[in-house]
């Protein structure tokens, strides 16, 4: 019975966030901001930001990530469950691989 429920589901969904979809103009605005952020990122290659360089890049990366995920992937408007999936996966990946790399770093220093 995989198919019979989907109509109702879609109905619910459209109802749930139908009115909150950003308009094309808003999408373009978001894309423009993303473009500016990317330009800022690339500028680290041309200008020396010193110690601030890496933290700056990471912050920009996170902002871009959240913007694309939130707006383009509709996480901001959709059910929270989707976001939970995504951030669980992301969290798992960050924790596990950071731990793994840490083991290499710790051992290399011994």
């Amino acid at each position: 019975m995989s198919t019979s429920g989907t109509q109702a589901a879609d109905a619910v969904e459209h109802e749930a966030h139908g009115g909150h979809h950003p308009t094309p103009t808003e999408y373009v605005r978001i894309a423009l901001i993303l473009a500016v952020l990317t330009a800022l990122e690339v500028s680290t290659y041309y200008f020396d930001f010193g110690r601030a360089g890496i933290p700056l890049l990471i912050i920009l990366m996170v902002i871009k990530f959240i913007m694309v995920a939130g707006s383009f992937m509709h996480l901001r408007y959709d059910t929270k469950l989707f976001g939970r999936f995504m951030y669980t996966g992301l969290g798992f990946a960050i924790v596990l691989y950071t731990a793994t790399l840490l083991i290499f770093v710790v051992d290399a220093n011994q």
């Binding site: 798992f92 596990l96 731990a99 083991i103 710790v106 051992d107 011994q110």
Partner: peptide, 18 residues
Amino acid sequence: GFGVWAHHMFTSAIGPVP
């Protein structure tokens, strides 16, 4: 179960802290 994998590597080349 996701946080214990290295216990299969206790005799491998990993240090005392891990």
